[in-house]
């Protein structure tokens, strides 16, 4: 009987300690996860007049929280892609000589439409729609 009683009390103590431990660990982990900050959702962004962009150039703009690379090719076509590499989060750049998108961190290469061509990127870059309204460039998300 004695040992049973001891076992019972020990397991009660064990459960109590576990409870106490989780009461300590849970607030710590919750504290470490930063609160979500409400963000303004935007669907389109005015970037500037067409004349500001020379052929064979690029610019990175902030589309809400997402960096977007706006490219004007040799031929004068506009293309907008999410600028965050799908491999490990670096910001990509436009390679003027090959008309490709390069991520310098691990030599990931995408074509001008964001398709992953070579190197480690596992997925293509998300495309944005570029419209020119009244001679002004406007980037629109495809999600809508």
């Amino acid at each position: 009987m004695g040992t049973n009683r001891r076992k019972f009390l020990n397991s009660l103590l064990g459960i109590g300690s576990l409870g106490a431990l989780s009461a300590i660990v849970y607030p710590i982990i919750s504290f470490l996860i930063p609160p979500k900050i409400a963000e303004v959702k935007i669907n389109s962004l005015k970037v500037g007049p067409v004349a500001d962009f020379k052929n064979n150039s690029s610019k990175i703009v902030k589309f809400g929280r997402t960096p977007v690379i706006l490219v004007r090719t040799k031929n004068g076509d506009f293309n907008a892609l999410e600028a965050t590499c799908t491999h490990l989060d670096c910001i990509v750049q436009f390679k003027k000589d090959t008309q490709q998108i390069l991520c310098a961190c691990h030599n990931g290469i995408y074509d001008i439409h964001g398709r992953n061509v070579s190197g480690p990127p596992p997925k293509p870059l998300k495309q944005f729609v570029v419209n020119i309204i009244d001679d002004e460039i406007r980037i629109t998300s495809q999600d809508v």
């Binding site: 990175i60 703009v61 902030k62 960096p67 690379i69 600028a83 590499c85 670096c90 910001i91 990509v92 750049q93 390069l102 991520c103 310098a104 961190c105």
Partner: peptide
């Protein structure tokens, strides 16, 4: 700069 491309040779 969060809006700059990763430099070559990183």
């Amino acid at each position: 700069d969060a809006l700059a491309s990763a430099p070559i040779g990183i």
